[in-house]
Amino acid sequence: MGLSKLDQLYRQVILDHSQHPHHYGKLDESTRTIELNNPTCGDVIQLHFLIEDDRITDIRFSGHGCTISKASASMMTDLMVGKTLEEALQLEKQFSLLVQGEEVQDVEELGDAVLLSGVAKFPARIKCATLSWKALEKALAE
């Protein structure tokens, strides 16, 4: 597959996550909720968690944002269901390094989120891509 076709595939997956986000909405009962915003572009995200026995059993997001922000939140929530809090925080660190252009071991652990690695070329978009992940980090640190 040529590079341009691969880029098109990546773009399509990102668009699909943005237009049809997974885990979008609020939880009826959540054990933790957090809201973060990106004042640079106006993206706002709320994360709603159900945590049982140190494990994320359900996670949802709501709010509004750009394509990158929504796609990243969708990818992140897909990845977090079933993870321990420690595993979730480790994945957040890996993702933050990835979108800053740093080398990441076991990159396949990031699932679809690895497709956002190209954000490293656009520093203004890094905050969009990491908004939901930073909300996750902040909520789990509390």
Rank of each mutant, 00 (worst) to 15 (best):
L47F: 14
Y24S: 04
E103C: 07
T130S: 11
H20S: 00
A139D: 01
V81A: 03
D112V: 15
T31R: 11
V44G: 12
T77L: 14
R125S: 05
T130N: 04
H64L: 06
D106P: 12
S4F: 15
A135G: 04
K138L: 01
S74T: 04
E103L: 04
T40C: 00
D16S: 00
D54M: 09
I126N: 01
S62M: 10
I68F: 04
L115E: 12
T57P: 05
T31Q: 02
C128P: 02
M75G: 15
F61T: 07
K70S: 09
E142V: 10
K93E: 14
D43V: 06
T31C: 04
G118K: 08
K127E: 02
A124M: 12
V99D: 06
H64D: 07
S69G: 03
S18M: 08
L3D: 11
D43F: 10
P123M: 00
M76V: 06
G63C: 04
S132N: 05
L115Q: 05
A124K: 12
H48F: 02
D43W: 13
V107K: 11
A73N: 13
G2E: 14
E52N: 13
M80L: 15
I34G: 01
D16Q: 02
D58Y: 03
H64W: 07
V44L: 10
I34D: 02
Q12Y: 12
D78T: 04
E29P: 05
Q94T: 11
L136I: 02
D112C: 04
E87I: 06
E109M: 15
I45V: 12
A71L: 06
K5V: 05
C128F: 02
G101I: 10
E86F: 12
H20T: 11
M75N: 11
N38Q: 10
L97S: 08
T67W: 07
H17Y: 15
R60G: 05
Q46V: 00
S30P: 02
E109F: 06
G101P: 07
R60D: 09
Y10M: 00
T57G: 03
E102C: 04
Q46E: 14
T40G: 05
E35G: 04
A141R: 15
M75K: 14
D78L: 06
T33K: 15
L89C: 12
D112W: 03
T77P: 06
I56K: 07
V99R: 00
I45N: 01
S72K: 03
S117F: 15
L136G: 03
K121W: 07
V104L: 02
D53H: 08
C128M: 05
T40W: 08
L9C: 10
L50I: 05
E109Y: 05
G2H: 13
D58R: 12
L110I: 08
G2K: 06
A124R: 13
V107F: 04
C41G: 01
K134L: 10
F95S: 09
P21W: 06
G118R: 02
E108Y: 02
T33R: 14
T33L: 05
Q46A: 00
L85F: 01
I34A: 06
F61Y: 00
I56R: 07
D28G: 11
L98K: 08
T33M: 02
M75P: 08
Q12E: 15
C41S: 09
S72F: 12
R125V: 11
G65F: 09
